[in-house]
């Protein structure tokens, strides 16, 4: 009897604990959804209160326009024209950025050698390079790829270099004590230990590359999504204009979520270690 009661009490406690755990896990999501919902509601109401749909349109109209837009081949052609140079520039920025970052983080001499250029690119709004890229490479894929690349590469480089530079000294010393080659030390200790830094660079660099993609579309003579934006703006088709922008935002968010996922996955050992510590 006594044991039954005890068991019962434990069950209740377990249930309560589980409920407490799940509610605290979902709380931030409730706030996020609530926050976004509130803004969308204000948008909707404000849009409906307008006399004309020329400048500001309700959120639901934008969603409808987007829904119609994604059913046209024109939208997907535009998307592809924007997307292909983005992918190339983005991947290039990751590959080059990680490579440079590893060298900079590992070799102080290489750091000193590249510092002026890294500092220069980091201080410069990359948008100012767009006209130069156009003069040099025209308005085709090469300039587009270059701009996306330049937007992304610095963050990837700097974060990777920081990741390498701040690898735990004790780990390196432990690796050295086992008397391997410098290359093995790099591959088996320094590189895996730098993964969290590298992945942070990938995430931030991805966000920057998306910005680069949009800048290219707005500042260059537009062929992809930018052309749609210019056209709808010219025709005062505000719902469609907003819909294109919304599509770009959604694309950016999607990539961010993806990059964040990869980052968390690759850095899992780090967060688990910190939880223990």
């Amino acid at each position: 009897m006594v044991t039954d009661q005890a068991a019962g009490a434990t069950d209740v406690e377990l249930t309560l604990a589980a409920r407490g755990g799940s509610s605290s896990r979902w709380t931030p999501w409730l706030f996020r959804i609530g926050s976004v919902g509130l803004v969308l509601l204000i948008w909707e109401l404000y849009g409906r209160a307008q006399d004309t749909t020329l400048f500001f349109v309700p959120f639901t109209s934008v969603v409808t326009a987007l829904w119609e837009l994604v059913q046209t081949t024109e939208f997907w052609d535009a998307f592809r024209q924007t997307f292909i140079p983005f992918i190339w520039g983005w991947l290039l920025s990751l590959v080059v950025g990680i490579f440079l970052g590893l060298l900079i983080g590992r070799f102080p001499a290489f750091d000193a050698l590249t510092k002026p250029y890294v500092t220069f690119l980091n201080a410069l709004p990359i948008s100012t390079l767009v006209p130069i890229a156009v003069i040099l490479f025209g308005i085709g894929y090469p300039s587009r790829i270059l701009i996306v690349f330049l937007f992304g590469v610095i963050e990837v480089t700097l974060n990777t270099a920081a990741g390498v530079r701040y690898v735990n000294r004790d780990l390196v010393e432990m690796g050295e004590s086992f008397n391997g080659t410098q290359w093995r030390l790099f591959r088996k200790v320094i590189l895996p230990a730098s993964v969290p830094g590298i992945m942070a660079g990938v995430r931030i660099g991805t966000g920057r590359a998306v910005v680069g993609m949009v800048v290219v579309e707005i500042l260059l003579v537009a062929v992809g999504m930018g052309r749609l934006i210019l056209r709808y703006r010219g025709r005062f088709q505000s719902a469609e204009l907003y819909a294109v922008v919304l599509a770009l935002i959604l694309f950016g968010i999607l990539l961010q979520v993806l990059a964040r996922r990869i980052e968390l996955r690759a850095s899992r050992w780090k967060s688990e270690m910190e939880q223990v510590a």
Binding site: D170, M174, G175, F178, G180, R184, L185
Partner: peptide
Amino acid sequence: DRAMVFQHFVLLPWADILTNVGFGLEMRG
């Protein structure tokens, strides 16, 4: 001819225990 045991263990947090034990051998090729 020498191997060291460290005060704060200094294991590779991303590798499982067996890989950690074999780490010295990996460093040696």
